[in-house]
Nucleic acid binder design. Structure first.
Lengths: 202, 202
DNA sequence: CAGGTTTCGTATCGATCACTATGGAAAATT
DNA sequence: AATTTTCCATAGTGATCGATACGAAACCTG
């Protein structure tokens, strides 16, 4: 997973692109795509505008790279929970409890970047909002796929709609993201997750 | 609930302030506070900038008035559900099914303005984001109050934390708001709501 | 060393942001 | 009708937006 655009010569960079990207990611996470100005990015990344644009093309590309980095570094719990060799119920439990932890990490913005990044957007940023929705829909599809596997294995009732239940689970996670943003603690999110799990069919 | 600042004389307004406020509310609902520019408002409201500023002071005041109008005209289902003389379980059912309907009305933006209006914000708009969080927290408190009433009446187990369960219900509603924004239909939201209600204690 | 390439720092660019100064027009008050 | 009051339309304000032009500086290759 090499992030580096191999440098073929010329003057070397005076900064670490991954470190800069990390700073940008946290800023986007906190304030969202549009509300994060270049001036804010410039200060947080410790770079001049030409440095940012040379390394990341433009603001939109920078945001997309921040999304990829977020996906790789902050929400591994989801893939782990969905791919672990455990019962379907246990997988859902790990998913929601993992979210409770990931959405309330000390020193990090509350909630999920995929939700906070651009829930509403200007017409100019519609493409970004759509991209985030795609991330959310893919997460929901991954949950549905895991539920379908469980259904095939007999973990779930045959009359259960995996799409419907996945929509519920994804919805709860989205709701947890907002509750986290509103200040809910990790423990409060865990309790919420446990409550939500009570809706699991026997 | 008179909205009109009684006009004491002089040339009368050439437009209907409530109608203009309605257009602004829908625009804020769709794009959020910061991403809605004055140029967009100008066109949607059919007014010139001085007309807007004379009638609504500034963009922030206009948004707050739009919030009040939204509260009065779009989400009456919540107060109705919580104050109806029905069992606590039925009240929660009406609340969530009401949200399913309100968050997916044809011709209206998906989801809830209190969620979409400014989930993330620039430092300059922090006051707006805080105001919206206050609206969300008040909704949650109203749910908790209704649950406490039900608990006192014996509708709910005595060991149930009404704050925790209210946080779950409010979280589900917030999640439904995002699912609505992502294109979920009224029927899909109803199914989500029904699933969430399965977590209700017997 | 020279030639080529890339990034550096400085100083902006035009466009858009929220907002308003100005002066005349229109209606209520006297 | 004269005066007062308010609103109207035009045309802009300074500030900030995302993004760049420019030339010097620092590296690699030959």
């Amino acid at each position: 997973m090499e992030n580096s655009d191999k440098q073929r010569g010329g003057r070397p960079r005076a900064f670490d692109p991954d470190r800069a990207l990390d700073a940008a990611m946290h800023l986007f996470w906190e304030h969202g795509y549009e509300a994060t100005s270049l001036a804010m990015l410039r200060e947080a990344m410790g770079l001049t505008p030409p440095q940012i644009y040379n390394a990341f093309t433009d603001k939109e590309t920078l945001f997309r790279k921040a999304l990829m980095r977020y996906h790789e570094t902050e929400i591994g719990f989801a893939l782990e929970a969905l791919s672990a060799p455990v019962s379907t119920g246990e997988a859902m439990r790990r998913l929601l409890l993992g979210a409770a932890e990931a959405y309330s990490r000390p020193g990090k913005p509350g909630g999920c970047l995929f939700v906070s990044g651009a829930l509403a957007a200007s017409p100019q940023a519609q493409a970004i909002a759509d991209e985030l929705r795609t991330y959310r829909k893919e997460s929901e599809a991954a949950i549905a796929a895991r539920l379908a596997k469980g259904k095939a294995k007999g973990d779930l009732p045959q009359n259960l709609s995996v799409e419907d239940f996945a929509r519920y689970i994804a919805g709860v996670m989205n709701g947890m993201s907002i509750q986290a943003r509103d200040g809910a603690s990790a423990e409060e999110l865990r309790v919420l997750a446990q409550t939500a799990l009570a809706a699991l069919p026997a």
